[in-house]
C-alpha cells in the first residue's frame, strides 16, 4: 500500500493506493493518526487507488473518523470505486461517512 499526503489549505488529502485489509490497515491507521496528532483533523481520504477493503479496512476508517471528529474535524471519502463502495454500503458506512465523487468536491465540502 502506498500513502501520499498532500495539503490543500486547511484540508489534508490522504491518497491511498492498494488494498486496505488486515495486512495493511495498521500502516494506514498510523499514517492517519499522525496527521490528526499533527493538527490536521480535516481529512479527505482519496480512495481512487483502493480496489478492496475488508473488515480491517472498515475498522481503520471508523477509528480515523472518530479521531478526527474528536479533534473538531472529519474524515470524508472521495473517488470511491464501485467495488469498495458496495462494501461501505453493506456495512452501513455510507450512513456515517460523507462520500464525494472526487477529491475537489470533498475538499470543497469543508468550506461549506
Amino acid at each position: 500500500m502506498v500513502i501520499v499526503v498532500e495539503k490543500r489549505e486547511v484540508v489534508t488529502i490522504v491518497s491511498i493506493d492498494g488494498s486496505v485489509d488486515g495486512t495493511t490497515a495498521r500502516e494506514l491507521v498510523s499514517s492517519l493518526r499522525e496527521q490528526v496528532a499533527g493538527g490536521s483533523s480535516r481529512l479527505v481520504g482519496n480512495l481512487a487507488g483502493v480496489d478492496y477493503t475488508s473488515s480491517a479496512g472498515l475498522r481503520a476508517l471508523l477509528e480515523t473518523v472518530k479521531d478526527t471528529r474528536q479533534h473538531g474535524g472529519d474524515l470524508r471519502l472521495a473517488a470511491v470505486r464501485p467495488e469498495v463502495l458496495r462494501v461501505l454500503e453493506l456495512s452501513g458506512f455510507t450512513s456515517i461517512l460523507q462520500v464525494f465523487d472526487d477529491v475537489d468536491a470533498a475538499v470543497a465540502s469543508f468550506a461549506a
Binding site: 485489509d21 488486515g22 475488508s54 473488515s55 480491517a56 472498515l58 475498522r59 462494501v87 453493506l90 456495512s91
Partner: peptide, 10 residues
C-alpha cells in the same frame, strides 16, 4: 466487522 478482530472478506 467492527466488533471483532476477525478478518471478514466479503
Amino acid at each position: 466487522n467492527l466488533a471483532h478482530h476477525t478478518e471478514i472478506l466479503p
